[in-house]
Design a protein around this nucleic acid. Structure first.
Lengths: 203, 203
DNA sequence: CATGGATGGTACTAATCGGTAACATTGGTT
DNA sequence: AACCAATGTTACCGATTAGTACCATCCATG
């Protein structure tokens, strides 16, 4: 054992710096438009060290996507922690997070959805990560909407899901002036007008 | 004058074959994943002839996108021709077209939106084409929804716009089993429940 | 038949990229 | 001090790519 920590409290170890650089570059310029040399340079290291931590470029891409997926899961936990037992508030919390991110971000939308667009080969390993994540998100959304007592949870959840996904892609074509920036208002009104079941009180 | 037509009634001229091949390959495999050699080969010609019709790869990409944008405009004219003076039917017609295409297609969504994802450089010439087209689509949608007499046309149109965009991207991540395939039902119900202005009958 | 423009085909350049080999350097541990 | 694992550095290979030069071929028109 005795894992070394090289630069102690200085800068993060190379693996983290590489992942961080990959994250920024992949997201901003697109996965297929960034070379491993560029990532290594942005991480303050070189290609050789990169390949000591990631056996191939595709594996780095996978690590990048899994990191994003994990953070996406984290938002759900944050919502639950912020408003325990209040699915309505959790829904609003999530929608606010997403719409704020979309507004503040560089207008490049959802990195995972972008990856699915860029990596078109149907058998590409990265697609499994993206598909699993999106499917999980949708299932959680259905569950949360059902918890909130809406009459037709799948319909409401699907509508929300498509609104969110649409907002993030459309940022890249119609930009910030388009309907993508109105996401929260649209989703909020959808929730406000969707019919509820008669009486739903915690179990 | 005196434009030659080489293969007469045989096969289309090389420029058309190249555009057709580019269309299929760019859409299926992604713009950045297709070489000009592959396009020329798929078009039954070679790179040299390709460069006699398109001064650069980017120009071919631009022609590809402009062709798609023009066809997108054509759908609006088809809707108007199919249901003249009936904006409600035109809306349904358009939504049906989009959702049928999404269902039947290879699950690669909107080629123009995909292009915006793939060509991330903000100053890339292709982005202007995509942005102009999407903006036009949205404006037409607002106008048509207003024509149909909805109380808050911009809200309804934006919601429809995001639903459509979301359906097409999400096809690539959650696939055909996801909410993208329910687009028409969702949009239809949205239109059915959205409030209308009191009396709106063609002036 | 002869001409000429459009096309087919080959070969090439220069640049880029993923991945690897070999060696120098560092800094903590014993 | 001596060791050793992780890292830095340079150079390289093979493959792919956008774009071009050059020549052969076809075919409609004169």
């Amino acid at each position: 054992m005795a894992r070394l920590k090289r630069q102690s409290a200085q800068s993060p170890p190379p693996r983290e710096r590489i992942l961080q650089a990959a994250r920024e570059l992949f997201y901003r310029e697109g996965i297929n438009a960034v070379s491993v040399d560029a990532i290594a340079a942005a991480a303050g290291t070189n290609k050789m060290t990169l390949y000591r931590h990631f056996s191939s470029r595709d594996e780095l891409v996978a690590a990048y996507l899994e990191q994003l997926a994990a953070e996406g899961e984290g938002v759900w936990e944050a919502a639950r922690a912020a408003h325990p037992g209040d699915p309505d508030a959790q829904l609003r919390f999530l929608l606010r997070q997403v719409s704020e991110f979309a507004a503040e971000s560089s207008g490049r939308g959802c990195a995972l959805a972008n990856a699915a667009v860029e990596l078109a080969e149907r058998k590409h390993p990265a697609r499994r990560i993206v598909e699993a994540h999106k499917r999980r998100q949708r299932e959680r959304l259905v569950a949360l909407v059902r918890e909130a007592g809406y009459a037709r949870p799948e319909r409401v959840a699907d509508e929300l899901f498509l609104l969110v996904e649409g907002a993030r892609v459309s940022l890249q074509s119609v930009g910030r002036a388009g309907p993508g920036s109105r996401l929260y208002a649209l989703a909020e009104e959808l929730l406000a007008t969707a019919p509820r079941k008669k009486a739903v009180r915690a179990h």
